[in-house]
Nucleic acid binder design. Structure first.
Lengths: 120, 120
DNA sequence: TGGTAAGGTTCCCTGTAGGGTACCGTGTTT
DNA sequence: AAACACGGTACCCTACAGGGAACCTTACCA
């Protein structure tokens, strides 16, 4: 209420409208793998194959796709080494790093929620 | 597979598996309207019709659905007054309140992100 | 001469989150 | 006798996020 009502303006990002910063954040990291990817990259720059190993239960295609979107949104930096076979390193941009505290809280909150849910 | 620091085990919630608390949190508040609903309820207990007014761009059906899920997840409390016409009040549970700091950060982060994106 | 490496892309398919519309119940007011 | 109040439910439909499988590139090595 205070947020969107007081400004009364709609926020737009890539042709989509958002009433509130929350929706923007969710649009950026709400994908099925994005938050986890950011979480992992926060600890280390990683090669594509490293990420594949971490996310063994998804496909190369999904990883590529999510990474490209994160890159397009300025949260992840993609560095290609011009060599064969290819070498590509992913790391967080400053903006990507800035979301880490939120991810941390989400991680803790989710764990605590489950703990509470599983101890009736 | 092994998630970095916080857990080595797979977490389950209502038959679904999560590798990390982040995914749990997203599963609970990642719906299209849930975070915003929690956000609004954090400021006030609200009647269903209040929420309808706040979320004028969704349908009664969607609101009901999201609210019921939030209730089922223990984040929202639903109080029915036995009268005609019906009166139903929604409020946050303690668990629902506990996620507010995250929503606040998400709101700020999203706004800042847009601000940065729109001033190149 | 073909296997392998890493990091993709292309095409096609599916499940489901999200949504539209219409109807319900029951007291009170016009 | 009908309209309205409020908070729903029932039924049906669609777009698109997510996913599976196969193919691509290019240098090197056996």
């Amino acid at each position: 209420m205070q947020q969107s009502q007081s400004t009364a303006e709609v926020m737009t990002l890539r042709d989509k409208e958002y009433k509130c910063g929350i929706d923007v954040t969710l649009a950026l990291v709400g994908g099925k793998w994005k938050a986890s990817i950011l979480w992992h990259l926060a600890q280390d720059t990683m090669r594509f194959s490293d990420l594949q190993r971490q996310f063994a239960d998804t496909t190369r295609k999904m990883l590529t796709q999510q990474l490209r979107e994160l890159e397009g949104d300025g949260l992840v930096h993609r560095k290609v080494y011009p060599q064969v076979p290819p070498k590509v390193e992913y790391s967080l941009t400053e903006q990507g790093k800035s979301i880490f505290p939120i991810l941390e809280m989400m991680c803790d909150w989710g764990s605590n929620y489950l703990k509470a849910a599983n101890t009736p």
